[in-house]
Design a protein around this nucleic acid. Structure first.
Lengths: 258, 258
DNA sequence: CCTTTGCGTTGCGTATGCTGCAATGTATCG
DNA sequence: CGATACATTGCAGCATACGCAACGCAAAGG
């Protein structure tokens, strides 16, 4: 659409990976150096990129700050933070908070194990999660209305990542029915063969599912059975967070009792 | 410099704060709605903003992801991560990692206390720290070469935030001499009257200071004396991180005493 | 039910603002 | 000290991003 803005975006993307010189930037865009320079200077003014002493350009603090600001202003994240950290300490495993935003599910928080022997998972805040090959994805899908579920799955092209992946709409629907009934989801290595996961939904004040919490472990650390033992803790966490968002379970016989 | 890019930047900034409608965006920029639309569509294509169901635009996951990518690719952050988390658990206080990037010092990691009663500090990853009114700033300045220190302080306009602020070059230099000699810095409420802090430097393989670790507490939780008791833990942490970066202490007679 | 209003969106001619060129400045090298 | 390889600045031309006006659409209101 907008040429110069697209060029600026390309440069930002590039700067997040490697430092780049002005000449590199110009070559990458296929434009004259003076053009690249003006774009970079504009970005530099906003601290979207920063110029190093060596004259190369790198990703700037302005974007990091904005991104932290945006994440920080999410109500969900604030309400959930302490519960996630408690859950991490209780289970010893990595805890994720994934939020449904528009048509995709993205990680908005992650609490790693502080232990030295902890395995670093490839998940990253801001990154989208597979909607059908993850516990958080499935548990959110399972609790959505039929229309919304169809909308989210409309543009999905299924891919069989591992043996256990639900790689077509039919088997996925069957799985989602099971998930909806019991109220939580498993991921038995459906995206990465050795990554196990359990997830529970988070509801807002209108009872709509908007996010999910999950506990993740690799098979070497804990198998599926061991992970399931943490279910009560996980469910307690998801219920507490939902409650903080104003969700009240449907049972009419349960008033504001403490 | 570049008009349309500047406009795009303004819209990104705005979207990080509130959701905005197309009309709002156009009014804010003082341009026609069609112009604002094209900019937003370009940004949307890169997931720098996202369009909500209500038709408003919000900060997109693309920028969050890029920012996490940029932070994650910093070697320092990877090497330091687990040490910071250990230090947090050992001290119970908030731990910061601040890195010297260009002419400014920014927070690149932060480990809050997971305790429920923990006070949320206003610091935020990506934000710049005062270079002369913070423990991390002072400890980095104190270990820099004379030229670099002068360069960093050249454009600084001193401001006396509190009674204890070193608000002129002369008193700051005296303080920096003390800091350099003992190898760590204090912040006795020099930026915010009730925020106490101790910091130690992190060296790279060439022995140059590139970052600092700090332990922070508000006076209600721990006074300066109590904070100083954590010094051995702090120094151990900073030395371990420096070692991971390839730094070897000059003193051959100082073994790995615990 | 039709009208009105307030949005977002599209097509198009125009001029603004971006681009490329060439010249200048600056640092690093032989 | 000249040569090279950069980044940077000024300027003229034209491509591109702009504003306008018309359209589509949904919600509000008579």
């Amino acid at each position: 659409m907008s040429q110069s803005i697209q060029r600026a975006i390309d440069l930002i993307r590039r700067s997040a990976e490697h430092p780049m010189s002005l000449t590199e930037a110009a070559e990458m865009l296929g434009v004259h150096k003076s053009t690249a320079l003006r774009i970079l200077q504009t970005l530099e003014g906003a601290r979207f990129v920063r110029k190093t002493g060596a004259g190369t350009y790198v990703f700037g603090s302005g974007l990091i700050e904005l991104s932290e600001l945006a994440l920080g202003s999410m109500d969900l994240r604030q309400f959930a933070s302490e519960h996630l950290r408690l859950l991490q300490r209780q289970t010893g495993h990595t805890v994720h908070l994934a939020q449904l935003t528009g048509d995709e599910i993205i990680y908005v928080d992650k609490v790693d194990s502080p232990a030295f022997d902890a395995v670093k998972l490839p998940s990253r805040i801001g990154r989208a999660v597979s909607i059908y090959a993850s516990a958080v994805g499935k548990v959110i899908l399972a609790h959505l209305s039929r229309e919304e579920r169809d909308r989210l799955l409309a543009h999905v092209t299924f891919e069989r990542y591992t043996d256990t992946t639900f790689a077509d709409r039919e088997s996925l629907d069957a799985e989602l029915a099971r998930v909806a009934q019991r109220g939580w989801a498993l991921d038995d290595g459906e995206h990465d063969a050795y990554v196990m996961c359990i997830a529970a939904p988070i509801m807002d004040s209108r009872g709509k599912v908007i996010a999910a919490v999950s506990v993740t472990a690799i098979e070497v650390i804990a198998n599926l059975h061991q992970l399931k033992e943490k279910l009560p803790l996980l469910l307690e966490t998801s219920e507490l967070i939902s409650k903080e968002l104003g969700f009240t379970p449907e049972r009419p016989s349960a008033p504001t009792a403490s």
